[in-house]
Design a protein around this nucleic acid. Structure first.
Lengths: 211, 211
DNA sequence: GTACGATTGAAACGAACGTATGATCTCTGC
DNA sequence: GCAGAGATCATACGTTCGTTTCAATCGTAC
């Protein structure tokens, strides 16, 4: 059989993945029909169930294709920052891999999945995110030794929230800003904002009891 | 005809609204069927199209019922803070009205709507949020006179992102925190985080040219 | 108590959905 | 140039969807 190298070529599988990525991101999983996808991809309706087994596993494949490289890059950046990273380095490692060119078409979809509780959120979290969250929690602890565990937990998710919001609304926020948006500029402002938030004074007066 | 006062009573309309709020929040608009709703509400299927005209306008009614009081409270809190509010006062006015008891059942839905681009996001933004965003943009400007307009815009939306993320995942984040969550505690940590983020040093070196 | 508008009820409509089927086409190995 | 596996095709199946219909019921004014 010799399965074709599916990387960059425009075979049926890839065209389906691209179309699914577009529609799932724009209209959500339930709001998208397989006929939407196969029409856009210019493939036969049955091709989806032939190459992927079901609509659900198609969605899994769409997510998998983009999220794995993003998380790999995140880990690399954390590694490169060494054992005592600055807050900025940690934030940058978390956020910037989502602002690179090749992830761009998946940004609305990723934002959507990470913003909404669903079967997919749970799956993605268990398969791809648990390890990332733990690793970044440690990295934040290394960069902010005085921050109690509970505050670290919440601030990490506040950070994730700002990021996913920008991702999910990346199609509509620029229209609201009233001027052309440079991706790099938004990234820099996001890193600045989040770093300052992470560094906010510790709230709990009884601090550091948890190990 | 003398339409019944629909406020707190458990009439057909209210029961539909409550059930719709629950399912739309849990499974999204497209993921919820009218039969889901009418079964939960123990009303006839046709009641939805009789009292509301369509599934879409039902969603509008569900949102309207909760968002109007929230925004009213936000404005009141800004008014109470006077013409020179602190950053904390602005953030608190923006966030805390969503953490009160009566909005609680609508929190997942509000988070979902504000996290995803959709027909409803656009409608809600135009009808309920544009004025709020403008008002809060001014309030941030008053509390942080040195912040250029563009950075103000983005930081406001970073703030909205953290908030909607906590709202949308309010059903799942507490399970991840590993310990019981006090709503008030999360609110205080959110205000601390966001206030520090808003106060972050200004990035753009050419600052303040826009009026 | 009777008339009448407001509401509820059971049932059905056509449309769109995800998926399955079986025939046909394509391409490679020999 | 033929065999056969992999891929694509048109088409149909059974379900579920939002909405509509129309008769039955309710509640109030007279």
């Amino acid at each position: 059989m010799i399965s074709a190298p599916q990387g960059t070529q425009s075979g049926t599988k890839t065209r389906i993945l691209n179309a699914a990525e577009k529609f799932f991101g724009e209209k959500g999983f339930d709001g998208t029909s397989l006929r939407d996808i196969t029409t856009e991809a210019q493939v036969n309706l049955a091709a989806v169930n032939y190459h992927f087994q079901s609509k659900e596993t198609l969605m899994d494949a769409v997510i998998e294709r983009r999220i794995a490289p993003v998380n790999q890059r995140r880990m690399e950046m954390l590694d490169a920052a060494g054992p005592s990273p600055t807050v900025e380095q940690v934030v940058e490692a978390f956020v910037s891999p989502l602002f690179v060119m090749d992830v761009l078409p998946a940004v609305p979809l990723i934002g959507r999945v990470l913003s909404n509780p669903s079967q997919f959120f749970e799956r993605v979290y268990k398969k791809h995110l648990i390890q990332v969250v733990l690793r970044f929690s440690d990295a934040i602890a290394a960069s902010l030794p005085g921050l109690p565990r509970e505050e670290r937990f919440w601030r990490l998710h506040f950070m994730a929230g700002s990021m996913t919001h920008v991702l999910a609304l990346s199609g509509v926020l620029p229209l609201m800003s009233g001027q052309p948006v440079q991706r790099g500029a938004v990234l820099r402002q996001l890193v600045t904002f989040l770093s300052a938030g992470l560094r906010a004074p510790v709230l709990s007066p009884f601090s550091e009891d948890k190990k």
